[in-house]
Computed example of a mutant assay.
Amino acid sequence: MDIVFVILHYMAINETKQSIQYINENIDTENYHIVVVDNASGNHTGTELQKIYQQHSHVTVLVNPENLGFARGNNVGFVYAKNRWNPDYMVLMNNDVFLLEKAFLDKTEREFRRSHFAVMGPMILTKDGRCDINPLKPEFSNIADIDKKIHHYKKDIRRYKYHYAPLYYKLAGIKGVLTGWKKKPTMFYKHAENIKLHGCFLVFSQEYIRDYDGLDESTFLFWEEEFLYKHMVSDGKVMAYNPDILVFHLEDASTDVSIPGRRKKMIFMLEHYIDSLNSLKKVYVDYERNSER
């Protein structure tokens, strides 16, 4: 098998069907497969997808009996594809990401010949016109950085719980304008290596597939990119960014469907941010202990 796409599905069926359609229409090989992993959608769209694609030779739909979160949910598809086909390349992608590239496998193979990447990311276009999501700057360099972020998120939760977050962030935005704050531009138009990649579309080569069974399962939701980056840097693996490959990201389709209301959604996200960062701290500690031996 040349390549397997693993799409994590939750609730938003129209986006998942579009994502499958874009792959089928644009992929430049017949030796591919799509594994859809339904993460126990409460609206029963997993079984609906099974019925829709039961006769499709390139699509398999797996239904998880419970919501396993992002990493473990993806890993169901990763391990299934690895054991069944052990493909040259594997893609983990959100169900709201659409493959625009018509020479995807060709460009992926050329990138592998150049960098021997374990993980690769494409240029990601978004509905607001941005194309600078990849590559990402690593958020943390040590455990103290993680602790600072956890403290910041705990304050954010209090702001949302006591209903003064909108005013706080409005004033913070005004302060940013007055002080001339600017977001540092990313080099999204240049090839790069050993950088952090956005988790909505990740390409794994055999350099990764043979050594791992998917993503770090320490987190239920969020900060998966930081886990992956830390593992790759510490394990001496290459992460590459290739701006010649294009995908479109609709963004947040699954969470938008499952968690209506901005305040409730933000509290949900912040609580999971903190849980994930506490798990990330443990990963840092483990690598530090191993380096001291």
Rank of each mutant, 00 (worst) to 15 (best):
A240P: 11
L99T: 07
D252Y: 13
L202K: 14
K102H: 10
V36R: 01
A240C: 14
V285I: 04
P243C: 13
N31L: 09
M269G: 00
Y80I: 08
M239D: 10
K175R: 14
L62F: 00
I146F: 04
M93T: 15
V79C: 11
A192I: 03
C131Y: 03
I195K: 13
V285A: 01
G129V: 09
A71G: 12
H44Y: 07
I3D: 01
D275W: 00
G129Q: 12
I133F: 07
G73C: 01
C131N: 11
L221D: 12
H249Y: 03
M90K: 06
V36N: 07
E48K: 15
E251Q: 14
I274T: 06
E101H: 08
D88E: 15
L171T: 09
P65E: 15
E30K: 09
E207H: 04
W181N: 07
H33S: 13
G173V: 04
F5W: 15
R210T: 12
K183C: 00
M1A: 13
K183Q: 11
D211G: 01
Y229C: 13
L171S: 08
K82Q: 14
Y229Q: 10
A240W: 14
V6K: 10
N14F: 13
Q18T: 12
I23N: 07
S115H: 11
C131K: 11
D213T: 15
N83F: 00
L270Y: 06
K265S: 07
D275K: 10
K182C: 05
H249I: 03
K183S: 06
T179W: 00
G199C: 13
H152M: 14
E288F: 04
H9C: 01
L270M: 12
N14E: 15
Y162G: 05
F78R: 09
S141P: 00
V76D: 04
L92W: 09
N14C: 11
D2W: 02
R72S: 06
S115K: 02
G129I: 11
S115P: 02
P260T: 08
M1L: 09
K17P: 02
N31F: 10
L136M: 14
G121H: 01
E109T: 10
H249W: 02
V97N: 12
K196H: 03
Q55G: 04
Y169K: 15
W181P: 03
E226C: 09
N14I: 11
I174N: 06
P185T: 00
G180Y: 01
N24T: 10
L178H: 10
K230V: 12
A71W: 05
I174F: 13
Y22W: 11
M187Q: 08
Q21F: 15
N83D: 05
T45C: 01
S41L: 11
Y10L: 14
D156M: 07
G42P: 09
F104T: 02
K127P: 09
L100M: 10
Q50P: 06
